[in-house]
Measured scan of single mutants.
Amino acid sequence: KYLVLALYDYQEKSPREVTMKKGDILTLLNSTNKDWWKVEVNGRQGFVPAAYVKYL
C-alpha cells in the first residue's frame, strides 16, 4: 500500500468521493484512473482528484 499527501482541501461532491484536508495522509487504494484516485481517509473509502494528492 502507498501513502499519499493531500496538497489541498477537497470537499466531496458525490457519495463516491471523500473529503480531505490539506496535509492529510491518505492510504492509496487504486490509481489506475489518471484523474481520480481511490483512497481511504478517516475510515472512509472514496475518490479524490489525482492532482490534489502526491506520493509520500
Rank of each mutant, 00 (worst) to 15 (best):
L5F: 10
Y10M: 01
V39K: 00
P49R: 04
L56Y: 14
L3I: 10
N33C: 10
K34I: 10
A50N: 03
S14W: 06
L5K: 09
K21N: 10
V41C: 10
K21S: 09
Q45V: 14
L29D: 01
K38P: 01
F47C: 11
T19M: 04
V4G: 10
L26G: 09
G23T: 02
D35Y: 15
E40D: 11
V4M: 09
G43E: 07
V39F: 01
G23R: 02
M20P: 00
N30C: 11
L3Y: 15
K54G: 11
S14K: 08
W36I: 03
N42S: 10
P15M: 08
E12W: 05
E17G: 13
L7C: 08
Y55F: 15
L5N: 03
V41R: 13
Q11P: 06
N30W: 08
K22T: 08
A51K: 14
S31W: 15
F47D: 04
S14I: 05
G43A: 06
G46E: 01
L29Q: 04
Y52W: 06
E17A: 06
L26A: 09
E12K: 14
L28Y: 02
K38Y: 15
M20K: 00
F47H: 05
K38L: 15
A6L: 03
T32D: 14
Y10I: 01
K21A: 09
R16Q: 14
L3C: 10
A51W: 07
L56T: 08
W37D: 00
N30K: 07
M20V: 10
R16T: 12
G23D: 07
L28K: 01
K34S: 13
N33D: 15
T19N: 07
G46L: 04
L3P: 04
G23Q: 02
K13Y: 05
Y55A: 13
T19C: 06
L3K: 12
G46W: 02
T19W: 04
P49N: 02
T32M: 12
W37G: 00
L26I: 08
I25Q: 06
V39E: 00
K1F: 13
V48A: 03
V53M: 06
Q45R: 13
K1L: 13
G23C: 07
V18I: 15
Y10V: 01
L29W: 06
V48F: 00
G43W: 03
V18D: 00
V48G: 00
K54L: 14
S14F: 06
Q45W: 08
V53G: 01
V53P: 00
E12N: 07
W37E: 01
Y52Q: 06
G43T: 05
V48H: 00
D24N: 07
V53T: 04
Q11I: 14
T19S: 15
L26H: 03
K1C: 12
L29P: 00
D24Y: 05
Y2G: 13
A51V: 10
I25C: 06
P49C: 04
R44I: 08
G43V: 02
K38H: 13
W36R: 03
P15G: 10
S14H: 12
A51P: 08
V4S: 03
I25S: 03
N30T: 08
Q11Y: 14
N30Q: 11
K21F: 11
G46S: 02
I25G: 01
E12L: 08
V41L: 15
E12Q: 13
F47I: 07
L26D: 00
L3S: 08
S14D: 12
I25Y: 06
N33H: 12
V39M: 02
Y52S: 11
L28I: 06
V53N: 00
Y2T: 15
Q45N: 08
K22D: 03
D24E: 12
K13E: 09
R44F: 06
A6D: 00
D35G: 10
V18K: 01
V4H: 04
L5Y: 12
V48Q: 00
W37H: 03
Y2I: 15
P49T: 02
A6N: 01
N42I: 04
Y8D: 09
I25H: 06
I25D: 01
L3M: 12
